[in-house]
Amino acid sequence: MESAFSAADLSAIWLTFKLAAVVTVILLLVGTPIAWWLARTRSFWKGPVGAVVALPIVLPPTVIGFYLLVAMGPNGPLGQLTQALGVGLLPFTFAGLVVGSVFYSLPFVVQPLQNAFEAIPERALETAATLRASAWDAFFSVALPLARPGLLTASVLGFAHTVGEFGVVLMIGGNIPDRTRVVSVQIYDHVEAMEYAAAHWLSAGMVVFAFLVLLALYTLNPTGKRK
């Protein structure tokens, strides 16, 4: 039997993991303040902002892909911005996929974090305040450690959901080897070209990966543990 994965397959796998890792880091940085705000605010805007964050769960990836393609194009607002900044246009680039995936996976990071922050008893933060901890200090030494299970869930889901992305990438990626051809697109191409053996290898790999990730999540983070 030939080797299971071709060079193109391996490149797609590497690219997919690179994309998911970058997106997860960005999402944790962007998503944590959003989740913290959503968890603590009593503002009127809580509802609307929460709804916007959750949109990608409901919207078909084609909607996100279509709007991103237009918005990041030469006449779109994002495209105008990136051109003015001298970075050029984002479609068909790795950076473009990162932007698309950040939108697409945002709720999968924000929502577990928000739940974790909401579960922190108000008293824990008040105690920190009476011990003269600054707001930052209280956040980093009290809130974050208490929200650790949520942080883990958010990272794993953000990463895994980005690995599982297909529609958005197909619409803004342009299928370029080493830059935008991720595993899901590579599988699609194999199937279209009737290379079922190659498609099987990659697909089975994805199934194993998804199972192991979820298994790790449920083992490390049993839901019944709280209290």
Binding site: L69, V70, M72, G73, P74, L89, G174, N175, I176, Y188
Partner: peptide, 20 residues
């Protein structure tokens, strides 16, 4: 410089949207 559409209509759409 090449970008690949899933079919010829998507290739056209990449150009129509100004991205290629």
């Amino acid at each position: 410089k090449l970008v690949y559409g899933e079919n010829v209509a998507q290739a056209a759409q990449f150009v129509q949207s100004g991205n290629a």
